[in-house]
Amino acid sequence: MTAPRVLIPVALGTNRDGDLAEAFAAAGAAPERVPLQALRAGEARLSDFQILAVPGGFSYGDALGAGRLLGLDLVGWFGEQLHEAHQNEVPMIGICNGFQALVRAGLLPGDQPAVLADNDHGRFECRWVELAPEPGNDSIWLSGLDEPIRCPIAHGEGRFVAEALADVEARNGVAFRYAQDGQRAHGEYPANPNGSAGDVAGVTDPTGRVLGLMPHPENHVFERQDILRGRRTGGQALGLFASAVAAVR
C-alpha cells in the first residue's frame, strides 16, 4: 500500500513545516513541503494529495493579524481547490499559524465567525501543556487518541473567540481542551495558557474532517521529545497523525 501524500504548503515565514513533515512521516505518510509560489505556478494541485496540513510559523510575519494574509492566499488563490477537497472529504489540519489561517479562511469553525485573539497576558509564550481530546467529538482526527497528550505551545495569538461558542459546543465541535492531570484547566493559568473560553485548544468543522489547534502535537511524536521524559510515560501525539493517515488509506 502506498503511503498517503500529505501537502504541507509553505508561505514566506512558515517555519514548522519540517516538524509537521517529520510527524506525518513517522505516522506512515508521504509528506511534501511545497512553497505557495510553486502551488500557484501549478507545480502541484491539492487534488494530488490525500491530506492537507497547514503548518505553524509566522506567515508574512503575522502582519495585520496572525494567519490573516495566509488565509487570504488560501481563499484567493486556492478557493476552488479547497472547496473541491472539502467536498471530497479530504482531511485537513491547521496547527498554530495554520489554525489561524484556516479560521481566517472561514474553514474553521466553519459555521460562524471566529478569531484567535491575543493571549490574555499579551505575550508570546512557549510552554508544554496537556490536551484532553473531547470525548463527544467523533472526528477522524481523534479516532486513535484515548488519553490526554502533552505538547508545547508557542504562540502570542491563541485565545479562541467564536461568535457563538455554545453552538460549537452543542455540535461537539470542540476537539481539544487544555487540561491538568486529566482535569479541565477551568481557565487557570498556566494550564490554560492563553485564556481561551471553555479551555478550547482546538476545534473541528461540522464535517469533522477539518481540525485546527493552537498547540504543537507535531513536536511530541517521539518519547525523547517529552519534557517529562524519565518522569512519566505516554502523552505522545503520534496517534493524531496516524488517525488521519488510517482514515485515507
Binding site: 516538524d19 505575550r123 509564550e125 512557549c126 504543537h216 519534557i227 518522569r231
Partner: peptide
C-alpha cells in the same frame, strides 16, 4: 518563555525542565 525552544522538534534538554 517568550522564546520558542521547541521548534524543529529536536530539543532534548531545554532551558526549563523538571517535575
Amino acid at each position: 518563555r517568550t522564546y520558542d525552544h521547541e521548534v524543529m522538534g529536536g530539543t532534548l534538554i531545554r532551558p526549563f525542565g523538571g517535575a
